[in-house]
Nucleic acid binder design. Structure first.
Length: 390
RNA sequence: GGAGAGGUUCCCGAGUGGCCAAAGGGGGCAGACUGUAAAUCUGUUAUCUAUGAUUUCGAUGGUUCAAAUCCAUCUCUCUCCA
């Protein structure tokens, strides 16, 4: 891939580039550049939202550049106390190491492992003495930190701001100094932090990194950004069937963004399908995503399963749950299989006509069950139960 | 160091002695409609051996026939002043 093409793809997707001229110069220098990308160490469960910048990293990789993943294990080990009641679980060295490994396995579904390096920021942050921290803190001013909108908003609303929180941008920015990054990539929510890195590099006598930010995609709820904790995500580790199903649930208005930011399908092609038949467009997207993360061979099975559920039929390969009893009540079965979390919830679901056995709605709490049957909650949770046979 | 405001069920937030398992909203779940979308409407959202019982309103103890509500102590959080 030539530099012009690389530049074009980056510019097309980036929200902001600081700044474009520097980027062009660096790309044309002929050097293999160091591209920094920061990663949260706590939960290495990547979803499609993460793939937006990852795909840009791939483009850079294909142009011969070197990716450095900085795992923020140092901050992970301190634990961020801003969550109030819960003290965030502190991660051990083994855990962060393991998470890093998992992370690597997931990102290499997209990236070339031979050009991808993982480093942990505890390597340098852990060695800093207090004097070093003071020196770092002295490079920035309160006024500049307060430029960050969330800080200033919290301040004017009399919300607490921890001193360590003020330091976070500096800590993260220092990572850029430590790895001497040429370019840093991140989501638009990281803009401020990335720019701090750029400023700090100047202070430490380095050539400042080019900062590029990319859009965050909204999750399946259509409002919030995609995130695991909001449960509105499509995980790249999820099964082909689940992926397909979730893709079909993407709100119509967001499909264009999903196509643009998470696939290679060209603009003309997807805009055509979307304007013609939005339903078909979802299918095209779902197939593409399954293909990307599970391979072409998995597409048909995932699609068939989806269609059979949509037709209100029971899918072929559903989870089987064994109960070591000959006979028991419906409520017991719901709780044992995890379809309900308590007897009360089980009763509620039955009262609300949300439970079916072999396709027939249950309307009596006292139903006794035995043998083999398929039980479902709502429209898409199915479990085949096999009781002990006589 | 001083002054003040707070801690309510998944979240936000009402509730100042019985009608409180606790308003309202959000979110979740289920139903209708549909394209397993969105929007809309409905129901539901502590637990249990279930027309009843048990536990829940930061913690512990107390007052009372009766406490989320009153008192004491403790604890945590936030704001302001110095």
């Amino acid at each position: 891939m030539n530099n012009g093409k690389t530049m074009e793809i980056l510019m097309k997707n980036a929200v902001n580039v600081f700044n474009e001229e520097e980027l062009r110069t660096k790309l044309n220098s002929g050097k293999s550049l160091k591209i920094k990308f920061g990663a949260d160490p706590s939960r290495p469960d990547l979803h499609l939202g993460h793939t937006v910048p990852l795909r840009m990293l791939k483009v850079l990789q294909q142009a011969g550049h070197h990716i450095i993943f900085v795992i923020g294990d140092f901050t992970g080990m301190i634990g961020d106390p801003s969550g109030r009641s819960k003290t965030r679980s502190q991660l051990s060295y083994e855990e962060t190491g393991k998470n890093g490994q998992t992370y690597f396995e997931q990102v290499t579904k997209i990236l070339d492992p031979s050009k991808t390096e993982i480093v942990y920021n505890s390597e340098w942050l852990g060695k800093m003495r207090f004097a070093d921290v003071i020196e770092l803190a002295g490079k920035y001013t309160l006024a500049r930190i307060m430029e960050r909108e969330d800080f200033s908003a919290r301040y004017s609303n009399n919300q607490p701001i921890g001193i360590h929180e003020l330091l976070y941008p500096l800590i993260q920015g220092y990572d850029s100094v430590a790895v001497n990054a040429d370019i840093e990539i991140g989501g638009t929510d990281q803009t401020f932090n990335l720019l701090v890195g750029r400023e700090l590099q100047k202070d430490y006598g380095q050539i400042p990194q080019v900062v590029m930010t990319f859009p965050l995609i909204a999750g399946l709820d259509g409002v919030e950004k995609m995130s695991k904790s909001l449960d509105n995500y499509i995980g790249i580790d999820e099964s082909a069937e689940i992926m397909y199903e979730k893709c079909m649930r993407i709100p119509d208005g967001l499909l264009t963004d999903y196509f643009r930011l998470t696939t290679d399908i060209c603009e003309a092609e997807y805009t055509d399908i979307i304007s013609e038949d939005i339903r078909e467009a979802h299918k095209v997207y779902a197939r593409k995503i399954v293909e990307m993360y599970h391979g072409r061979d998995c597409i048909n099975a995932a699609e068939d399963r989806y269609n059979s559920i949509a037709a209100k039929a029971i899918p072929d390969n559903i989870d089987v749950f064994h109960i070591e009893e000959y006979e028991t009540g419906i409520i017991d079965v719901l709780v044992k299989t995890g379809l309900a979390t308590s007897n009360s919830e089980a009763r509620r679901l039955i009262a609300g006509r949300g439970i079916k056995i072999d396709g027939i709605t249950v309307n009596d709490f006292s139903v006794r069950l035995k043998g083999k049957f398929v039980i479902c909650r709502g429209k898409n949770k199915f479990i085949e139960v096999r009781m002990k046979m006589i």
